[in-house]
Deep mutational scan, measured.
Amino acid sequence: EPEARKIVEKLINNGLSPEDVKRWAEKNNNPEVKKAAEEYQKR
C-alpha cells in the first residue's frame, strides 16, 4: 500500500519512531499503516 508507506515516512520525518507510528496506527485503527511501519523497520 504506497499511500500507507507515504504516511509512515511522513510521520517518521516528523520525528516519530516506527514504534510510535505503529501505536498511532493502532489508535487510529489503521492496519495498513501499521503494516507499512513494520515493513519500514525491516529495511
Rank of each mutant, 00 (worst) to 15 (best):
Glu1Ala: 13
Glu1Gln: 13
Glu1Arg: 11
Glu1Tyr: 13
Glu1Val: 12
Glu1Lys: 11
Glu1Ser: 13
Glu1Cys: 13
Glu1His: 11
Pro2Lys: 15
Pro2Trp: 15
Pro2Thr: 15
Pro2Phe: 15
Pro2Leu: 15
Pro2Tyr: 15
Pro2Asn: 15
Pro2His: 15
Pro2Ala: 15
Pro2Asp: 15
Pro2Ser: 15
Pro2Val: 15
Pro2Ile: 15
Glu3Ile: 10
Glu3His: 10
Glu3Ala: 11
Glu3Val: 08
Glu3Tyr: 08
Glu3Asn: 12
Glu3Trp: 13
Ala4Arg: 02
Ala4Ser: 06
Ala4Phe: 06
Ala4Trp: 12
Ala4Tyr: 08
Ala4His: 05
Ala4Val: 06
Ala4Pro: 08
Ala4Ile: 06
Arg5Thr: 10
Arg5Val: 11
Arg5Asp: 08
Arg5Tyr: 15
Arg5Trp: 15
Lys6Gln: 13
Lys6His: 10
Lys6Ser: 12
Lys6Gly: 06
Lys6Asp: 10
Lys6Thr: 11
Lys6Glu: 12
Lys6Trp: 12
Ile7Thr: 06
Ile7His: 03
Ile7Phe: 10
Ile7Gly: 01
Ile7Asp: 00
Ile7Ser: 02
Ile7Tyr: 06
Ile7Arg: 03
Ile7Val: 07
Ile7Lys: 03
Val8Arg: 01
Val8Gly: 00
Val8Trp: 06
Val8Ser: 01
Val8Thr: 03
Val8Gln: 01
Val8His: 02
Glu9Phe: 08
Glu9Lys: 08
Glu9Asn: 08
Glu9Trp: 11
Glu9Pro: 01
Glu9Ile: 14
Glu9Val: 09
Glu9His: 10
Glu9Ser: 07
Lys10Pro: 02
Lys10Asn: 13
Lys10Cys: 14
Lys10Arg: 14
Lys10Met: 15
Lys10Tyr: 15
Lys10Leu: 14
Lys10Gly: 09
Lys10Glu: 14
Lys10Asp: 13
Lys10Phe: 15
Lys10Ala: 14
Leu11Phe: 11
Leu11Trp: 10
Leu11Ala: 04
Leu11Lys: 01
Leu11Arg: 01
Leu11Glu: 01
Leu11Asn: 00
Leu11Ser: 01
Leu11Gln: 02
Leu11Val: 00
Leu11Asp: 00
Leu11Gly: 02
Leu11Met: 14
Ile12Tyr: 04
Ile12Lys: 02
Ile12Glu: 02
Ile12Asn: 01
Ile12Leu: 12
Ile12Asp: 01
Ile12Thr: 02
Ile12Gly: 01
Ile12Met: 10
Ile12Ala: 01
Asn13Met: 14
Asn13Ser: 14
Asn13Ala: 15
Asn13Asp: 09
Asn13Phe: 11
Asn13Gly: 12
Asn13His: 12
Asn13Leu: 14
Asn14Lys: 14
Asn14Val: 09
Asn14Thr: 11
Asn14Gly: 12
Asn14Arg: 14
Asn14Phe: 14
Asn14Tyr: 13
Asn14Ser: 15
Asn14Ala: 15
Asn14Pro: 00
Gly15Leu: 04
Gly15Lys: 03
Gly15Cys: 07
Gly15Phe: 03
Gly15Asp: 02
Gly15Ile: 04
Gly15Ala: 03
Gly15Arg: 03
Gly15Thr: 03
Leu16Glu: 03
Leu16Arg: 04
Leu16Tyr: 13
Leu16Gln: 04
Leu16Gly: 02
Leu16Val: 06
Leu16Asp: 02
Leu16Phe: 13
Leu16Met: 14
Ser17Leu: 05
Ser17Tyr: 03
Ser17Thr: 13
Ser17Arg: 05
Ser17Ala: 05
Ser17Trp: 03
Ser17Gln: 04
Ser17Glu: 04
Ser17Pro: 02
Ser17His: 05
Pro18Asn: 03
Pro18Arg: 03
Pro18Ile: 15
Pro18Met: 12
Pro18Asp: 03
Pro18Phe: 15
Glu19Gly: 05
Glu19Ala: 08
Glu19His: 05
Glu19Tyr: 05
Glu19Leu: 07
Glu19Trp: 05
Asp20Ala: 09
Asp20Asn: 04
Asp20Ser: 05
Asp20Phe: 05
Asp20Arg: 04
Asp20Pro: 00
Val21Met: 04
Val21Gly: 00
Val21Cys: 05
Val21Glu: 00
Val21Arg: 02
Val21Pro: 01
Val21Ala: 04
Val21Phe: 02
Val21His: 01
Val21Ser: 01
Val21Leu: 05
Lys22Tyr: 11
Lys22Glu: 06
Lys22Arg: 11
Lys22Val: 15
Lys22Ala: 09
Lys22Asn: 04
Lys22Gly: 05
Lys22Ile: 15
Lys22Phe: 11
Lys22His: 06
Lys22Thr: 07
Arg23Val: 09
Arg23Thr: 08
Arg23Ile: 11
Arg23His: 08
Arg23Cys: 10
Arg23Ser: 07
Arg23Asp: 08
Trp24Lys: 00
Trp24Asn: 00
Trp24Gly: 00
Trp24Leu: 02
Trp24Ser: 00
Trp24Arg: 00
Trp24Pro: 00
Trp24Ile: 01
Trp24Cys: 00
Trp24Tyr: 02
Trp24Ala: 00
Trp24Gln: 00
Ala25Lys: 02
Ala25Val: 00
Ala25Thr: 01
Ala25Met: 02
Ala25Gln: 00
Ala25Ile: 02
Ala25Phe: 02
Ala25Pro: 00
Ala25His: 00
Ala25Leu: 03
Glu26Asn: 04
Glu26Trp: 04
Glu26Pro: 02
Glu26Ala: 06
Glu26Asp: 11
Glu26Leu: 06
Glu26Thr: 06
Glu26Gln: 06
Lys27Pro: 00
Lys27Ile: 12
Lys27His: 09
Lys27Leu: 14
Lys27Tyr: 11
Lys27Ser: 09
Lys27Ala: 13
Lys27Gln: 13
Lys27Cys: 13
Lys27Arg: 12
Asn28His: 13
Asn28Asp: 03
Asn28Cys: 14
Asn28Tyr: 11
Asn28Glu: 07
Asn28Ser: 08
Asn28Thr: 11
Asn29Lys: 08
Asn29Met: 07
Asn29Arg: 06
Asn29Cys: 11
Asn29Tyr: 05
Asn29Asp: 08
Asn29His: 09
Asn29Pro: 01
Asn29Phe: 06
Asn29Ala: 08
Asn29Trp: 04
Asn29Gly: 12
Asn29Ser: 08
Asn30Tyr: 15
Asn30Lys: 14
Asn30Thr: 05
Asn30Ala: 13
Asn30Met: 15
Asn30Gln: 14
Asn30Ser: 10
Asn30Gly: 01
Asn30Val: 10
Asn30Trp: 15
Asn30Ile: 11
Pro31Cys: 09
Pro31Asn: 08
Pro31Asp: 10
Pro31Phe: 10
Pro31Thr: 08
Pro31Lys: 07
Pro31Ser: 08
Pro31His: 09
Pro31Gln: 10
Pro31Met: 12
Pro31Ile: 11
Glu32Ile: 07
Glu32His: 10
Glu32Thr: 09
Glu32Leu: 13
Glu32Phe: 11
Glu32Asp: 10
Glu32Gly: 10
Glu32Val: 07
Glu32Lys: 07
Val33Glu: 01
Val33Cys: 03
Val33His: 02
Val33Asp: 01
Val33Asn: 01
Val33Ile: 09
Val33Ser: 01
Val33Gly: 01
Val33Arg: 00
Lys34Phe: 15
Lys34Asp: 03
Lys34Leu: 14
Lys34Thr: 07
Lys34Arg: 12
Lys34Trp: 15
Lys35Gln: 09
Lys35Val: 07
Lys35Gly: 03
Lys35Asp: 06
Lys35Ala: 11
Lys35Asn: 07
Lys35Trp: 08
Lys35Glu: 07
Lys35Phe: 08
Lys35Tyr: 07
Ala36Met: 11
Ala36Pro: 01
Ala36Val: 12
Ala36Gln: 07
Ala36Cys: 07
Ala36Phe: 08
Ala36Leu: 13
Ala36Ser: 05
Ala36Asn: 02
Ala36Lys: 03
Ala36Glu: 08
Ala37Thr: 03
Ala37Glu: 00
Ala37Cys: 06
Ala37Ser: 03
Ala37Trp: 05
Ala37His: 02
Glu38His: 05
Glu38Ala: 07
Glu38Cys: 09
Glu38Leu: 09
Glu38Asn: 05
Glu38Met: 08
Glu38Arg: 04
Glu38Tyr: 06
Glu38Pro: 00
Glu38Val: 07
Glu38Gln: 07
Glu38Lys: 04
Glu38Ser: 05
Glu39Trp: 08
Glu39Gly: 05
Glu39His: 06
Glu39Ala: 09
Glu39Phe: 07
Glu39Tyr: 07
Glu39Pro: 01
Glu39Asn: 06
Glu39Asp: 09
Glu39Met: 08
Glu39Leu: 08
Glu39Ser: 06
Tyr40Thr: 01
Tyr40Lys: 00
Tyr40Gly: 00
Tyr40Glu: 02
Tyr40Trp: 14
Tyr40Val: 03
Tyr40Arg: 02
Tyr40His: 04
Tyr40Ala: 03
Tyr40Asp: 00
Tyr40Gln: 02
Tyr40Phe: 09
Tyr40Ile: 05
Gln41Ser: 09
Gln41Val: 10
Gln41Trp: 09
Gln41Met: 14
Gln41Thr: 08
Gln41Ala: 11
Lys42Ser: 10
Lys42Pro: 05
Lys42Thr: 09
Lys42Val: 09
Lys42Trp: 08
Lys42Gly: 07
Lys42His: 10
Lys42Ile: 10
Lys42Gln: 12
Arg43Lys: 11
Arg43Cys: 09
Arg43Ile: 11
Arg43Phe: 14
Arg43Met: 13
Arg43Tyr: 14
Arg43Trp: 14
Arg43Asn: 10
Arg43Ala: 12
Arg43Ser: 10
Arg43His: 10
Arg43Glu: 13
Arg43Leu: 13
